[in-house]
Amino acid sequence: MKQPKIQIRDLTLFYGEKMALNSISMEIPEKEVTAFIGPSGCGKSTFLRTLNRMNDLIPNVRITGEVLVDSLNIYDKQIDVVNLRKKVGMVFQKSNPFTKSIYENVAYGPKINGIHDRKKLEVIVETSLQKAFIWEEVKDRLHDSAMGLSGGQQQRMCIARALAVNPEIILMDEPASALDPISTAKIEELIFELKKNYTIVIVTHNMQQAARVSDLTAFFYLGELVEYGKTRKIFTTPDKKQTEDYITGRFG
């Protein structure tokens, strides 16, 4: 087996005095979809945010252990967090377009990377929007405000915005939780398409979704990684009782 894209070793996270993640170790393979499931408050979103160090923004967070991306510990003092986030993109639970035009939203990332050539930007914006399956819907109103898009469109535009920076890994924090079934289906289709080129980690509280889109599934409970393995196995013959209870809907 090839080198895993992300390796987590003994990761523990505290919010102040409270332990939110307890000694988590796992490996996330390249160009596959890994889903994190678990009841709310189990730490899965927090864990996702450790993978591109978004937790740095929250005061009183203390982290021990290692997260290796391409064998590089991203919690090393020598790591540049800003560039790390270009490599590890993120899509949030609530679609969060900037109050700018669609074009400006997608071009934001390339621009801060120093690309100001109009031609180049146009190509990047178009390609990104195409990859996110939204180009056809917005190509005639690129310069309208992104706030005018529907929820599902906004979310796909946010994915396009993340793709425009050309990341290798995309973290998705419940990307479809606020969307209707049709938009959700589109997002899932998109995820399926994206995994050809990107490593995707997705947090979801929707087990069907995890079963549909992911190759691997990790079940979290109370800040611990209970079980991790092939999605099919987790959903059919889990090793742990807790996992089975959750999957079958006995709690959570």
């Binding site: 590089l72 790591i79 270009k86 120093g114 190509v123 990047i124 390609t127 793709l163 050309n166």
Partner: peptide
């Protein structure tokens, strides 16, 4: 074309 954005990921860039 996105891969031509000039930003290459490597140990060095991180």
């Amino acid at each position: 074309p996105i891969e031509n954005t000039g930003f290459v990921f490597s140990k060095e860039s991180l």
